[in-house]
Design a protein around this nucleic acid. Structure first.
Lengths: 194, 194
DNA sequence: ACCTGAACACCGTTCAAGT
DNA sequence: ACCTGAACACCGTTCAAGT
């Protein structure tokens, strides 16, 4: 209800929202701080208070992306039946839906890190990895997955999901193939078990 | 031996070479047509004869990348022993070495396609996919891989390799873990066989 | 056929100054 | 604490003109 004559009061959130929309509709290349400022009706230097530079904006987008993906994955698993294969399939489906809907964002989340030292992963990325790790451990407990170091199996599952996503977002595979790819992935990880 | 006073004669190749080096050492963001022209000692508008725009340069880089990756993969497979698991391991190792050495290039090769219509894949990408498809078919013939549509299994293997590569280039996994990841991948695809 | 030079519109980034 | 306005150095892209 503010007229925001000078202080916007909400600028950071507005910029992030606009950025997510532009990212989805136009891709990373088209994402410009000046353009975002323009859309928010604010001077071109204003965003600097909230994002030190363009990379900081991209980092914030990636962070929010990890948080949302973790949420959607957990929700999908929670909604699935007790059957382990169904839970695994639900998780994979949620991951790939995210990839199809927000491919540019997912690319950003797994983009080459700038060589600015051994920066720790964002907490939201850890949440995603933890959720998938829990799913792996659960599968091993019910003997639906092969035994062995759960961290290694988790990494392999994340890699497989991310790889399928990369094939789809890059146009090397059609979104229509994702159903088959999910089925094959579940079969590969749970083969000869139950 | 030319003094190249006006016509460079070799500009396209020089630009591509410089671009590959910059890509490896500085990343895509730092890749600029003007800078490349400067390094080649040529006017900033000269590259336009050879690359219509920046995207055309990136496409050419990706194309050359696919060709080189296909070569390295074929060479690694040819050098491996007759044992099928060894061949699969050799292929995966070559793929991940490429990812570790030229992560930015691999990112480029699997970057989101610009929405400029249903462009056909470059022939070099097809060569890579064909090489991996042959490896899959061979594995099914000797019963080292599960039966089923070889195209689907091929897509899944490419996805797994590309996913591991993405985890490594993004810093989500350490290059030191690639050996374990390769072993786990081979075990997953060949489990309970021979 | 290939390259130059000037020009245009757009960036990211910085910094004094305003409220 | 947050935002403005001018300034700087850099892009990609275009196009007439040169060789």
């Amino acid at each position: 209800m503010a007229d925001r004559p000078y202080h916007h009061g909400n600028l950071r959130a507005v910029l992030l929202d606009e950025a997510q929309r532009t990212l989805r509709e136009q891709g990373v290349e088209q994402l410009s701080l000046r353009d975002l400022a323009r859309q928010a009706g604010v001077s071109h230097a204003a965003p600097r208070r909230h994002f030190h530079d363009r990379q900081a904006l991209l980092d914030a987008l990636a962070d929010a992306g990890f948080a949302r993906l973790a949420d959607e994955l957990c929700a999908a698993i929670a909604d699935a039946s007790e059957d382990y294969e169904a839970r695994l399939r639900a998780a994979a489906t949620a991951y790939l839906r995210f990839a199809i809907d927000d491919g540019a964002l997912l690319d950003l989340m797994f983009a080459t890190k700038n060589a600015s030292g051994p920066t720790a992963l964002p907490a939201s990325a850890t949440r995603l990895f933890t959720a998938i790790g829990d799913l792996i451990s659960q599968g091993q407990e019910v003997d639906a997955l092969p035994p062995g170091d759960p961290a290694r199996l988790r990494l392999l599952l994340v890699a497989t999901l991310q790889g399928i996503a990369a094939l789809i977002t890059s146009g090397r595979a059609d979104p229509g193939q994702s159903h088959d790819l999910i089925a094959d992935t579940v079969a590969l990880f749970t083969r000869d078990r139950h």
